[in-house]
Amino acid sequence: MLEVRIHGRGGQGNVVAAYLLAHAGIAGGLHAQAFPFFGAERRGAPVAAYVRLAARPIRLHAAVRTPHFVIVQDEKLLGLEETTAGLVAGGGLLVNSPADQATLHARLGERMQGRNWQTFGVPASDLSRQHLGRNIPNTALLAAWAALTGVLEPAALEQAMTARLKPGMLQANLEVVRAMGSLVAPGAWHDLAHHALYDGSAQHQETGHAGAA
């Protein structure tokens, strides 16, 4: 079972991102669960949302404590201890940032020690401003995560966006997703993601896409 935590600020579409990712997982033939950090949300305050993806039904209803991936919508949140808390050793850290890997690692400082996190920065805000005319980086980050892991076919993500985004916002967001696809190294997190998804078993790695429309 693969676990993702998404960090952002209230109003940044954090829960929308989690729901989109789970929706895309289900559209792609996987089992999925998504939920926000439970509590009151304030615009601008740091918030988190969680996603589980698995090849088998998910019965667990507990908090996500040791995610395999952390997605950070606002790079300033990297400075908070809680942003990387519990991220598994060797886990993937995807940051909305034009900065390169070395710069991001330097910002994490001692927290990186012995964790061997695989970090990527992607210019999600730039893409969002370019296509949407404002800074809503969530779909760009999801597109980057989908390409890096290979867990979701682009069609599954587009299906989820078509179902969940307001019609007026859909086209520009689809453009964001397509533009992001060419900016990351596809499959860089393939093994990490598939190992988590199939509980360490490599046998059924491709069956997850069976239901992709």
């Binding site: 989690a18 289900i26 089992h31 999925a32 669960q33 998504a34 939920f35 439970f38 998910i58």
Partner: peptide, 11 residues
């Protein structure tokens, strides 16, 4: 269950 079910998306 409040939040645990009400606020959780599942298939």
């Amino acid at each position: 269950d409040g939040y645990i079910l009400t606020h959780t998306l599942e298939g």
